[in-house]
Structures are given as C-alpha cells and as structure tokens.
Computed example of a mutant assay.
Amino acid sequence: MDDVTPTNSQINSEVVRVDLGSRGYDIVIGQGELSRLGDRLKSITASDRVAVVTDETIHALHGGAIAEALSDFRTHMIIRPAGEDQKSMAGLDAVLDSLFRAGFDRSDTILAFGGGVIGDLTGFAASVFKRGATFVQVPTTLLAQVDSSVGGKTAINNAYGKNLVGAFYQPRLVLIDTNLLATLPVRQIKAGYAEIVKYGLIDRPEFFEALDDGIGADVLSLEPNALREAISVSCAAKADVVAQDEREGGVRALLNLGHTFAHALELTAGYGGALLHGEAVSAGMDMAFEFSARLGLCPVPTAKRVQDHLSHLSMPIRADMAPFLTDPDTLLSHMRQDKKNEGGNITLILARGIGQSFIEKSASEAELKAYLKDIAT
C-alpha cells in the first residue's frame, strides 16, 4: 500500500501495519475515518469500481455514509440479510452471482462493510472470485474491528461446524471508524470486548492489568481515548502474530484462546442469535483457565481472577452457559471437529497464568470429558 500523507483532520488517526512484505497493509484507526475512505482506496487501486457487501441492518444505519464516502467511485451495493446464516454456501453464491451479474473483474475492489459475518463472507468471496480480487475491510462492530477484520482468515460455516470452509486471504486495507460503534447494541459491544481482553490473557499481561484497573469499563462505555487505545493495542497484538505465522502453522493458534470451547458452544446453541460469537469466547476463556487450573497448570486464584474480571463487567462466564452444557458427549464431538486439531488429537489453548497462554496439541480427552461432565451437573 502506498503511503498516505496525513492531513490535519487525520492527526487523531493511528496506523498499525501488518508486515507481510509485499502483501502487507495498514489498519487505520480513528474517529470519522469513514469519510476518508475514498482517498484511502485511491492510494491502493486504480479501479473506480467498488462492490460494497453489507447487511440490511448496517445499510439502514450507515448506507448514506458509505455512499457519500465512495461518491468518486462507481459503487455496486450487495445487501444481504443480517445474521450468521449468511456465512453459508447459499450466502456465498448470492454474493458471487451479484458480482458476476454486475460485470466485476478482479482488479475492482470488493469491500466488506459490516461485522464479522459480512467480513468473513466477503473475504472468502473475494478470495475465490476469478481467483482473487482486491479486498478491503471496513468493520462496523467492535469484535470485527479488533479481531476478524485483521489477519486474512475468511470462511463460511457448514453442518460440521463454524468456519470450516475458507481461505487465508489478506485485505489490502482495514479502515476502522470508531464512530460506527455508537449505534451498536450493548450486547455487541460486550461481545467485542471478549476479543480485546483475550490479547491480554494470551501474552500481554500489562494490557490485562490496565483493563482490569478500569480501562475495560471505559471501553465498554465507548470512551473515545480508551476505545482507540484498546483497539490499537489489540490490532497491534494480532498484527505481530500474523506477521510471524500467517497461516496458523504455529503461534497464530494462540489467538484461539477460548475458541475451541466457544465454537462447540455456538454449534450447540445454533446460529440463530441465542449466543453471539464474542459471548461464547468470553465463556470459553473462562473455561480454558478453569480447565487449566483443574489440570494443575494454572493457579486456581489466577483462573478465578479472570472469571471475576469478566463477571465484574457483566461478561458471560461458564456458569451462564448452562443451557448449552447439558450434553458433554456432543460438546466433545464438536470439539473434535476443530480446525486446529492434528493427528486425531484435540488441540487446546491453555494457560499457566495471565499472559502465559500456550498451545497444547494433545489435550487429554479423558480429562476434558470429565471436566465437561462435571460442569454439566
């Protein structure tokens, strides 16, 4: 991506670089960044055509703003229903069909304007459209801003689990406008916060300390400085890992702290909105620390501190997942489908302490099943 010289109106923006050599890109973070989207796009593409993939909810809230931001471009809107069920073969086919009908080619830009569902679906569509088109992320939820929009993981779901059909496909730009979060329901903000605190629990204990000392509450209240700082730290943490391990062959698996439990909970709950991804991740991290303590890897008071932090901020913990924990055998079956698993073994991200997470590639199924049975009763 070419350098963009900041203007006076961009002083409050922060830029985090994802260093992947010639495929590297910037994550631009700030208030009002959407209004500068057009100029940013001109720095990365010569095409004047943009396909914007969004959902009905985001279009109703911000359709006018995105149209104004792209007023110098020929814009094709692809508006999908909201909801996780769009991450499907049917949803993918609908996006691709619209692109072909509109006559797009791979030099044109395909832009995701929405949360994680839209980002994952659009990114996967871009990866397979004529073997790869220019892809840009403009995430509108906190979870997407700090996690799913960064790093190039794109996917759809199928009957066997979440994100099992996909590709690694990096965007050319991620533009984060924190003003877009003002219309987000509190439940969605909390879902995003789960992915923020995750970075502290993986390997940035000082970040967790800051969140625990009060910044976490400020983030949840959308205080501008705390919000921008937390998003910036989160994106930098993920960018560092992605630069080391783009395709999850090693350390990138750490970013899945709590996710093996979370994906099993989500599949059990179904994808109808009963359980948001971030809610499942919050409870999944509590479970990962609780299970680590059960195995003697992590001090019990440390696991309790993680649980207390989440609970204090009214974030979901394992105890809140009771309706989805009644069938240990089914949960274990779901966990066996996880993408990180190798050689028939279940891979879990466990912890020895706050900021001391590690990859366990041969988690004991017997211990795991015993734990799932205990919490089910």
Rank of each mutant, 00 (worst) to 15 (best):
D48E: 13
A155R: 03
Q188I: 01
Y271C: 06
L184S: 12
D218G: 07
V117F: 01
R40W: 09
R318Q: 15
R17V: 13
P299A: 10
S9F: 00
F100I: 11
D338L: 03
N341E: 14
V306M: 10
P171N: 00
R74K: 14
G161R: 08
N256R: 08
K87I: 01
G273H: 07
D85V: 14
R247N: 15
M89I: 12
L41K: 02
T178V: 10
D338P: 03
A167E: 09
H259P: 04
T183L: 05
S282H: 11
D245F: 10
G284S: 11
I176Q: 01
I79A: 06
R49K: 14
I156N: 04
E209Y: 09
E14Y: 07
K304L: 15
S107D: 10
R204A: 13
L142T: 01
A319H: 14
S35H: 13
E84C: 05
V117Y: 01
Y199N: 09
S357C: 13
S221C: 09
Q31H: 11
E246Q: 15
A237C: 14
E342H: 09
R187P: 05
Q86R: 12
M285L: 10
N12K: 11
F129M: 07
D374Q: 11
D3I: 04
Y371N: 06
A65M: 06
L92R: 14
A303P: 07
R172F: 05
E229L: 15
N341P: 14
A159Q: 12
S13R: 13
F113H: 10
D203K: 15
R204M: 12
L331W: 01
A351P: 08
E206Y: 09
A67C: 11
S107I: 05
L181Q: 03
L184G: 03
I176Y: 00
I375C: 11
K190A: 11
K361L: 10
R204D: 13
I79R: 04
M89K: 09
Q10I: 03
G21Y: 07
D218M: 13
V281L: 03
D212G: 10
V52P: 04
E266T: 08
V306K: 02
A239V: 11
R204W: 12
H76V: 02
A155I: 07
H309D: 06
G91H: 04
G64K: 05
F113T: 08
R49S: 10
H76A: 00
A94K: 09
L255H: 07
G278F: 01
A133G: 13
A94H: 06
L372C: 06
D218P: 03
V50F: 04
A133T: 08
D120S: 09
I231N: 06
N12Y: 08
I346E: 06
S357E: 04
T134I: 14
P328T: 04
G344I: 05
Q86D: 03
C235H: 07
Y193L: 10
G214S: 08
V186Q: 14
